[in-house]
C-alpha cells in the first residue's frame, strides 16, 4: 500500500478506486456479460426490421427516448456508487450527470454492440442501422454505430469500460462546476487507475491515448443528439411534451 504511483497516490488507493468503480459498473449494467453473449446472435428478423421501418417517426423517437432514459437511470446509479461522487456538492453531481450521462450510455453501448455484423441490442434483440431509419436522422444513427464499432476495436475489458465510463462522467471539462478542484482530484485518480489497468492489459503502449482520443467524438455525438431532438421537437412538439419520459426532457430539452 505504501508504494507510490503517479502524483503520490498510493498504489493501494488506486487499486481501491479501481475495485470500487468496477464493482459499481458491474452492479449497474442493464445486462451482464453472460447475458449479452447469449443474446449476441439473436437478431431481429427481416419482418421485425420492416415493422420498425414502417413505424411513424414520432413513435420510434418515443421508443428510443424510453430506452435511453432507462439506460440513464442505471448510469445515475453507477455514479452514486462511485466513491467520492456523492461527496461532491449537489450542483456538481447534477451538472456532471446532466452533461455526461448520455456519453456514458454511448460508452456502455459498446458492450451491447456486435462489431461482426454491426448490430446493436434494441428491445431484446440485435438489429442494424436500418432498424432506426424511421427516426429520420441517419447521420446521428450512423455516427453512433461508427463510434460503437471504433470503441469495440480497442477490445476493452469490462474493467477498462468501467474506469473509462467513470473518467468520462467525472470530468472537469463541464462548464459551471462549483468545485472544479474537487472534481479534478477525483478525475486524476480515476485516470491513474485506468492507466495502470491498461498498461497491465495491453501490449499496445498507445492504447490509453487511443481511448482518450474517442472523447471528442462522444461529445460531438451528444451535440448532434441535442440538435436532432430540437429539429424533431419543432415538428412534433406534442409528442415531446406529452409522451417523452420526464427525465429525458429534463436532461435534454
Amino acid at each position: 500500500d505504501s508504494q507510490l504511483g503517479p502524483n503520490n497516490v498510493s498504489m493501494g488507493e488506486l487499486d481501491r478506486i479501481a475495485q470500487n468503480i468496477i464493482k459499481s459498473h458491474l452492479e449497474t449494467c442493464q445486462y451482464t456479460t453472460e447475458e449479452l453473449q447469449q443474446l449476441a446472435w439473436q437478431t431481429h428478423s427481416y419482418e421485425e426490421v420492416k415493422m420498425y421501418q414502417s413505424k411513424p417517426r414520432d413513435v420510434l423517437w418515443q421508443q428510443c427516448a424510453i430506452q435511453i432514459t432507462h439506460a440513464i437511470q442505471y448510469v445515475v446509479e453507477f455514479a452514486k456508487r462511485i466513491s467520492g461522487f456523492m461527496e461532491l456538492c449537489q450542483n456538481d453531481q447534477i451538472l456532471l450527470l446532466k452533461s455526461g450521462c448520455l456519453e456514458v450510455v454511448l460508452v456502455r453501448m459498446c458492450r451491447a454492440f456486435n462489431p461482426l455484423n454491426n448490430t446493436v441490442l434494441f428491445e431484446g434483440k440485435y438489429g442494424g442501422m436500418q432498424m432506426f431509419k424511421a427516426l429520420g436522422c441517419d447521420d446521428l444513427v450512423s455516427a453512433v454505430f461508427d463510434f460503437a464499432k471504433s470503441l469495440c476495436s480497442l477490445q476493452l475489458t469490462e474493467e477498462e469500460i468501467a474506469l473509462f465510463s467513470a473518467a468520462v462522467l467525472i470530468s472537469t471539462d463541464r462548464p459551471w462546476l462549483m468545485e472544479p478542484r474537487k472534481v479534478q482530484k477525483l478525475q486524476e485518480k480515476i485516470y491513474f487507475a485506468l492507466q495502470h489497468i491498461m498498461q497491465k492489459n495491453h501490449m499496445d503502449e498507445d492504447a490509453l491515448a487511443k481511448l482518450i482520443s474517442r472523447i471528442p467524438t462522444l461529445s460531438a455525438l451528444c451535440t448532434l443528439h441535442t440538435e436532432e431532438l430540437q429539429a424533431f421537437q419543432q415538428l412534433h412538439p406534442e409528442t415531446v411534451n406529452v409522451l417523452f419520459p420526464p427525465l429525458y426532457k429534463e436532461l435534454f430539452n
Partner: peptide, 17 residues
Amino acid sequence: LKEKHKILHQLLQNSTS
C-alpha cells in the same frame, strides 16, 4: 439547478438499491 432538475435530484437523493 436543483429546481430545474427535480427528477435527477430525486434519483440522487434516493438510497442506493
